[in-house]
Amino acid sequence: MILALLAASIVASGQTFTCTPTHVWDGDGPVWCAEGPHLRIAGIAAREMDGTCRTNQPCPDATAIEARDALVRLMGGARGTISTGHVVVRGPRLTCRSEGSAGGNRTAAWCRLPSGADLSCAMIKTGTVLRWDRYWKGPACR
């Protein structure tokens, strides 16, 4: 019961938290964290898993699978899948700063990989997601 409540909780905006990725859905999240939150990677847009893009967001050329697989590689590689279609990962520990709710039970956040690299920038560099200017509050990607 406590784990279920923790999994559905939104990390308050401005709070720093740790995310150890366990499951990935698509190229911009949610990423399920062992610590409970479901992470929506801030400032980027990927195709939905059915291949579509919402009308109010940027639409990358890359497929949803290509974006998801790029994120999975950044999360240490696939360890299998579960019945919902989420890819199981045993990712590196991320340090994240919440932007608050991303809708549903997701926390929008800016995260850093152990190398110090910004995760949103790392995903943009893969060419599988686009910067979403409406929500971009992140660093200048190099």
Rank of each mutant, 00 (worst) to 15 (best):
R79D: 12
W32T: 12
G80D: 02
R142T: 08
A45M: 07
H38L: 10
Q57I: 10
C33L: 06
A46M: 00
D69R: 05
D118G: 09
A34W: 11
G103Q: 03
T18N: 14
S13Y: 12
C59W: 08
D133G: 13
M123P: 14
C33T: 01
A102R: 06
C33P: 00
R73M: 08
P60K: 00
G77S: 08
G100F: 11
P92R: 13
T52F: 01
L119R: 07
V11C: 11
I82V: 11
V89W: 10
A70T: 03
S120D: 11
A7H: 13
G100A: 06
L94D: 13
C141L: 05
A45C: 12
A102F: 10
G14L: 07
L119V: 03
R90A: 14
P58F: 02
C33V: 07
P139W: 10
Q15G: 06
V87G: 03
A78D: 04
V24Y: 10
D26K: 01
V87K: 02
A7V: 15
R142Y: 10
C53S: 05
R112A: 09
S115Q: 02
E66G: 07
W25E: 05
L6S: 14
A78T: 03
A7W: 14
R112V: 01
Y135W: 15
S101R: 03
R54L: 05
A102Y: 08
H86I: 00
V87Y: 09
T126G: 09
T20G: 08
T84V: 01
R40K: 07
R131Q: 12
T126N: 04
D61M: 04
A45S: 15
T16R: 12
C19H: 10
G127D: 07
G43W: 14
I10F: 14
C33W: 04
G51F: 00
A46E: 02
D133A: 11
R79A: 11
I65D: 11
S98K: 05
T55R: 15
R134P: 12
G77K: 11
A140G: 13
A67M: 02
A62Q: 07
P139M: 04
R134W: 10
E35R: 01
A78P: 00
P58K: 03
A62T: 08
L6P: 06
A7T: 13
E66Y: 01
I82W: 00
L6M: 14
I65Y: 06
T63N: 03
V129H: 00
K137H: 15
R68V: 01
L71E: 00
T55E: 13
G80H: 03
V89T: 04
W32V: 12
W32K: 09
G85P: 05
L3E: 09
E66W: 04
A122H: 06
T128V: 06
N56E: 08
W132Y: 15
A70Y: 04
R79N: 10
I124T: 13
W132A: 04
W132M: 03
H86D: 12
A70C: 08
Q15K: 13
S83P: 01
L113P: 02
A70K: 03
C59T: 09
I82Q: 14
I44A: 02
